[in-house]
């Protein structure tokens, strides 16, 4: 039974999840783009594209002067995102999977580095969750979706780490759980705020384009 389930999540399950992710995300992005916006009739002082592209890039590296709560959000946010991306793209097993599908890959990072990245990402996520409960601003802004997406992003990290470290369950069960949690994340992502993995760059472009148009380098 366990093996059958594993075969399903590695086969049909993964295919369904990939299809929903790709089609769902494409629909979401296209739907947003097609809403369109009116081009400005004012005389431009600078370039929309230059401003848009600049903001797409620069907004990833902001460390504004912030108070304690803001600084915590920024630092924990960086640690989570960087840790998550390192485990996703530089674990040898993940690269092998990618190579099996697309025919090419890239060098993996040593397991020790992956372990540290995963632990830091998990720690940052827990800290951010606690902060979401205790910080008045975040508490006001939070709703069901915030906790749903937190859970769905947390499970792949947690099960992946348990899998590498042989914690809790036997290997095949953990592998099944890990793949299934990733599939759940892929299926839900296009229809929640997790879509920000792509739409962030659109949002930044629109924001930067207005500034670029006005000749503001910000």
């Amino acid at each position: 039974m366990d093996q059958e389930l594993l075969l399903w999540v590695r086969g049909t399950g993964l295919q369904i999840a990939t299809a929903v992710f790709v089609l769902g995300m494409s629909y979401r992005v296209l739907h947003l783009l097609l809403l369109g916006r009116k081009p400005s009739l004012a005389v431009a002082r600078g370039s929309e594209w230059a401003g848009g592209l600049r903001t797409m890039w620069q907004r990833s590296f902001m460390l504004p002067s912030l108070s304690g709560r803001g600084l915590f959000t920024v630092i924990a946010g960086y640690v989570f995102h960087v840790g998550f991306l390192i485990t996703l793209f530089f674990l040898s097993q993940h690269i092998d999977l990618f190579r099996a599908v697309f025919g090419f890959g890239w060098p993996a990072l040593p397991r020790g580095v992956i372990d540290i990245a995963a632990v830091l990402a998990i720690g940052a996520m827990v800290a951010l969750l606690v902060h979401r409960f205790i910080d008045p601003v975040k508490r006001l802004l939070s709703g069901f979706e915030d906790f749903l997406t937190w859970t769905l992003s947390f499970l792949p990290l947690l099960t992946g780490f348990m899998l590498l470290r042989n914690i809790g369950f036997e290997y095949l069960t953990l592998l099944t759980l890990h793949i299934a949690s990733v599939e759940l994340l892929m299926v839900v992502a296009p229809f929640t705020k997790l879509a920000h993995m792509f739409t962030t760059f659109m949002a930044r472009w629109y924001n930067g384009a207005v500034n670029g148009f006005k000749g503001i380098n910000a």
């Binding site: 947003l32 369109g36 912030l66 709560r69 915030d146 879509a195 962030t200 949002a203």
Partner: peptide, 21 residues
Amino acid sequence: IDAPVATFFSTCVHCGLCAES
């Protein structure tokens, strides 16, 4: 609600950093 507005709402992760500004 145009493309930028819908994109902004879709993208907000409720981090609360705007409060600081």
